[in-house]
């Protein structure tokens, strides 16, 4: 879903809803077939609750009800899409007032749990924003969460000292205070666009 966050928030919301609805009507069968690509690009991603591991124990999406949660899926040996997106997210967070920032919880979920342990996920996430949590799970747990959010990823063996890379889609997912997927922000969105998407999902306008 190539949603760009320009114009007024209500209009944006309508646009997102319209996109989701039309996608759901056109591709109702595909959503259940694991054809993630069409599902994700068409906005069929449904979101939903999950529980994963952080360096200090289990983290459930539910525990952030009342806050806006912003999710990113990637891996720490990713040289490019991940640090680029997480740096932009960090910059967006740093532009918020303390009151606004308090209402937003950034989560980074690894698609490479084999190489990303919880400690490393914590360090990596904190580097981009102090309250960002790094989460991991088993391969199947991570795959299940990714599927719910319409994340596309594939482990790819390459002729490199890196051994393998994870091809992956690179959107930010904004989960509203009610725990429902509110919107997604495309790769390459500048911090202001990310901030606008997060603000639009805040339960009440911060002063």
């Amino acid at each position: 879903m190539q949603t760009t966050f320009r114009g007024n928030p209500l209009h944006r919301l309508k646009l997102v809803l319209a996109t989701c609805l039309s996608a759901a009507v056109i591709f109702p069968a595909i959503a259940h077939e694991g054809t993630h690509s069409l599902a994700a690009r068409s906005g069929v991603a449904r979101g939903g609750d999950f529980t994963l591991e952080s360096s200090s124990g289990r983290v459930a999406l539910k525990q952030f009800r009342g806050k806006v949660v912003v999710l990113y899926f990637g891996y720490t040996s990713c040289p490019d899409a991940c640090p680029t997106t997480l740096a932009a997210l960090g910059a967006a967070m740093k532009g918020f007032t303390p009151a606004e920032a308090d209402q937003v919880q950034p989560l980074f979920i690894t698609l490479d749990p084999a190489r990303d342990d919880a400690k490393h996920m914590e360090e990596y996430s904190r580097f981009f924003y102090p309250s960002m949590l790094g989460l991991r799970g088993t391969d199947s747990q991570v795959a299940a969460v990714a599927k719910h959010y319409g994340v596309l990823f594939a482990r790819q063996k390459v002729d490199s000292a890196a051994n393998y890379v994870i091809d992956h889609s690179s959107l930010l997912y904004v989960v509203g205070a009610d725990g429902k997927l509110a919107s997604s922000v495309p790769y390459g969105a500048p911090p202001l666009e990310i901030a606008a998407a997060l603000r639009a999902a805040l339960p009440r306008p911060a002063k």
């Binding site: 690509s37 994700a40 690009r41 990713c78 040289p79 490019d80 899409a81 596309l152 990823f153 594939a154 790819q156 390459v158 002729d159 490199s160 000292a161 890196a162 890379v165 091809d167 992956h168 889609s169 690179s170 790769y187």
Partner: peptide, 20 residues
């Protein structure tokens, strides 16, 4: 670094793919 490689990133099927 132990190794330096030449890489690119392509976008395909909605995914970012890094390749040597």
């Amino acid at each position: 670094a132990k190794t330096a490689e030449l890489h690119t990133v392509i976008e395909e099927g909605g995914m970012k793919k890094m390749r040597p």
